[in-house]
Design a protein around this nucleic acid. Structure first.
Lengths: 110, 110
DNA sequence: CCGTATCCCTGGCGATACTG
DNA sequence: CAGTATCGCCAGGGATACGG
């Protein structure tokens, strides 16, 4: 039988996952990084349908704070910044992957 | 090598999935229905930390329109309504499941 | 019981301009 | 190049009251 705490813990985990992700762009940003890890700021921006700089920085900062991605600065001129996935981020690939499969399977019809 | 359309299709599928889900409550509502399929309105509401009626109805309508859940009305007095998962909805379990695993693994630390 | 209807309001997001 | 700084909007969500 299912106990109450089972349910609660299940929902809590899901809730937590959504909190770590934050905004609506996180999925697609992570998806982009899975397609090609270690991308630069404007590279991401171009690949993401011209997301506004604010939304992109907000999303990246949020993901960084939550340990999902890593920000590395190269002191070139002009400066170069590369975003890559942490282990926690790479581990999220299973979720994104399942989401992609589902999106492809059920995308156009019902 | 990876082509441009690969990337685009990948991102498109993810984007589509997020569109089908809609708001922030969808994940947890679906999670609840996976815990126990076929639940009634107030039953869901109580299980979901007293989500407002508006948010719940909005979420349920959205998911229904997108063929993820099914709404069945029993003409009792007072009326009884049960929400259950469609095949499309049940198929989403893989995503939720991976999300739960990830949430449990990485929930508390980084 | 299962919602709809309303009001309100916050914060997420986009657009733009500007800096190191 | 990689952002920060502002402003303004408005959809999404909460609270409450009411209707079938």
């Amino acid at each position: 039988m299912r106990t109450n705490s089972d349910e609660e813990q299940c929902l809590f985990s899901i809730h937590q996952a959504t909190q770590v992700l934050g905004g609506k762009w996180s999925f697609v940003v992570l998806g982009q990084l899975f397609c090609q890890d270690s991308q630069r700021f404007n590279q991401l921006r171009r690949n993401l349908d011209n997301i506004s700089t604010k939304s992109l920085t907000d999303t990246l900062r949020h993901l960084e704070r939550n340990g999902v991605i890593h920000r590395k600065v190269y002191p070139t001129v002009p400066v170069t910044v590369e975003y890559s996935l942490t282990e926690k981020g790479r581990d999220f690939k299973n979720v994104i992957s399942e989401m992609r499969i589902w999106g492809q399977k059920w995308g156009s019809n019902m």
